[in-house]
């Protein structure tokens, strides 16, 4: 169910946004035309999809706590490390494969919609290929982050609130800070890391795509480490 929402959001919103851009291209200013990135625009659906994958990651573990089935699960697999790693493998593999497929379809669909009117990009360019692949990687990392939150907080609603806050509310709070602070902090926001990963040429105030990937991976690894340590230590 969650996966379906994820696919529909990414492809459907990607199509809607690209169609809208195409139909209004004639009124787009020359400056905006210059900075226009056909790759990240075609992947705009991922902005919504990131919440879907996060929720999938969260529910993979938090639903066990809300239904109580964690006790049956741990009775069957008392090695908690093994349990966490198995769930992680299933989550990462499935979300990665689906994300990549969906991102490539969204990209191709977007370029097809743009073609003739709006400038397009092709996968033969290394930066474009990297952007599309990283879009899928970004979604996968967010799913794992959701899973880590689930291990730490165990309550679905709390996890989803925190997840949404980090992606949506954090950037808004940063906007209230002094400009010089904003310049240093913004690039560390998870959503900014995602933007950097998905654009062919990330703007100067963001990290380079590979750096952004490493920073996000560190966030996820730390959260996962804390989550697994808590799973080992706490009573079920």
């Amino acid at each position: 169910m969650g996966v379906l929402v994820f696919i529909v959001l990414t492809l459907g919103l990607g199509a809607l946004i690209t169609v809208a851009v195409r139909s209004h291209w004639h009124e787009t200013s020359p400056v905006n035309r210059l900075t226009f990135d056909p790759v990240s625009t075609s992947l705009a659906g991922t902005i919504f999809a990131q919440f879907a994958v996060g929720v999938i990651g969260v529910l993979l573990i938090s639903s066990e706590y809300s239904s109580g089935s964690i006790r049956t699960t741990l009775a069957a697999v008392p090695n908690r490390m093994r349990l966490a790693v198995s769930k992680l493998i299933v989550l990462t593999a499935s979300i990665f494969i689906i994300s990549e497929i969906v991102c490539f379809i969204a990209f191709s669909m977007g370029q097809a919609i743009f073609s003739g009117v709006v400038p397009t990009d092709s996968l033969s360019s290394g930066a474009v290929l990297r952007s599309v692949i990283f879009a899928g990687v970004y979604l996968t990392l967010l799913a794992v982050f959701g899973f880590a939150l689930g291990l730490i907080l165990r309550h679905s609603a709390a996890c989803i609130s925190v997840f949404t806050s980090l992606l949506l509310v954090l950037p808004i709070i940063v906007l209230f800070l002094p400009q010089s602070w904003q310049n240093t902090i913004t690039r560390y926001e998870p959503s900014a890391l995602g933007r950097a990963m998905m654009s062919t040429t990330p703007p100067a105030q963001l990290f380079a795509a590979w750096t952004a990937l490493v920073v996000l991976a560190i966030y996820v690894a730390v959260a996962l480490g804390v989550g697994i340590a808590l799973l080992q230590r706490r009573d079920a």
Binding site: E64, S69, P78
Partner: peptide, 23 residues
């Protein structure tokens, strides 16, 4: 210890909370 048993369901069967299943 239970956690050290390889396939625990083959050595120990337990009914703790009947509702502790994925609904």
């Amino acid at each position: 210890k239970y956690a050290d048993i390889k396939s625990p369901l083959r050595e120990v069967g337990a009914l703790l909370d009947a509702k502790a299943v994925h609904p």
